[in-house]
């Protein structure tokens, strides 16, 4: 309270100076006083109180109406001060939550991080951008040897923290599968059972799993209701949609998945994405799938990593662009 006492003296002097000379400098000092009060958590009614005391010391014979009115103001400011304090504490809580979420987001990145396999003759690019702090999209590469690359791309319904938590579950169940369970349809069937048992009624996950076998030059794959990707056939210079049929994960526990296989030749590409890519909006308009394909074509001559980044940047640059959903794009190209 000693500080406040000092402040009252100070405030009285400032007030006196201002009333007598309408001194600009006193106004400036008053502003500093106000800032200092905020820093020291001094409530608005305390400032009013200081003002009343200073005024009475300077003018002991104030008309009683003015005296009453000042008390009235003091009472009014008490409720204001309480509301202000409440807001202040909410703001602090919000900051705390924000930093907790950012810790969680970092942790998610560490938990779910995956390394692009570095295999001679294969060029891989991958980008994943969350719409909010936490990412509900997920991609993962598995490459235990130089003979095969497993690639998973998944999208959890909804966004934010619940989605991110479900993703961690997917990742850890995938890690627990033995070598013999690593063909695409078994992976999806096993994951489906895990997800069905462990998620909320209305929650589901879409996922595409592919296994690129470098020896046999084939790509086998299966899809659980995931946004269709694209194949690029270098020999005919054609893009073709990866046609698959399969129910999303987590809806029906006995779902089986069909496995498909294609040959991969020199220059061919596998392009995988999530619906964040096809569900972007620019202003009021949706970006059509054909348009996404046009943009991919435009950058496809670049090295794979550069290409995926340029495609994202292209959409990001559009005016009124808003990312409504997490955005993930992967390109795998056979170079030899």
């Amino acid at each position: 309270m000693r500080n406040l006492k000092l402040d009252i003296d100070n405030y009285r002097n400032l007030l006196k100076q201002y009333i007598k000379f309408l001194d600009e400098n006193a106004l400036y000092q008053a502003e500093q006083f106000s800032k200092l009060s905020i820093q020291h958590n001094i409530s608005p009614e305390e400032i009013i109180n200081v003002h009343i005391q200073a005024l009475k010391e300077l003018y002991p014979d104030l008309p009683k109406e003015v005296d009453y009115s000042l008390n009235f103001l003091l009472e009014t400011m008490i409720s204001y001060g309480l509301a202000y304090q409440e807001m202040q504490s909410l703001r602090e809580q919000q900051l705390e939550l924000k930093s907790e979420i950012s810790v969680a987001a970092n942790m998610q990145q560490t938990l779910l991080s995956t390394e692009k396999p570095n295999i001679k003759g294969v060029d891989i690019g991958a980008i994943s951008v969350p719409a909010n702090q936490m990412n509900g999209d997920y991609y993962h590469f598995v490459s235990d040897n130089q003979q095969s690359i497993g690639v998973a791309i998944a999208d959890v319904i909804g966004k934010g923290i619940p989605a991110a938590l479900a993703m961690s579950m997917i990742k850890y169940s995938m890690d627990s599968f033995s070598e013999s369970q690593r063909n695409p349809c078994s992976i999806l069937e096993n994951l489906n059972r895990v997800v069905e048992r462990n998620v909320d009624q209305g929650m589901f996950i879409t996922m595409f799993y592919g296994l690129y076998n470098l020896n046999s030059e084939t790509f086998s794959y299966a899809s659980a209701g995931h946004e269709p990707g694209l194949f690029y056939h270098a020999s005919t210079n054609e893009f073709r949609e990866i046609k698959t049929k399969g129910l999303v994960l987590g809806v029906s526990k006995d779902t089986t998945y069909q496995q498909y296989e294609i040959e991969i030749s020199h220059g061919d590409m596998i392009i995988l994405l999530t619906d964040g890519v096809t569900e972007c909006r620019v202003g009021n308009r949706f970006i059509e799938r054909e348009e996404v394909l046009e943009v991919i074509k435009k950058y496809i001559h670049l090295p794979a990593q550069e290409a995926v980044e340029q495609v994202y940047k292209h959409f990001e640059r559009l005016q009124g662009f808003q990312l409504r959903d997490d955005f993930t794009l992967i390109i795998i190209r056979k170079n030899v």
Partner: peptide, 8 residues
């Protein structure tokens, strides 16, 4: 159709 929900 994509999500296979049309089958259930």
């Amino acid at each position: 159709e994509i999500t296979g929900l049309d089958s259930i």
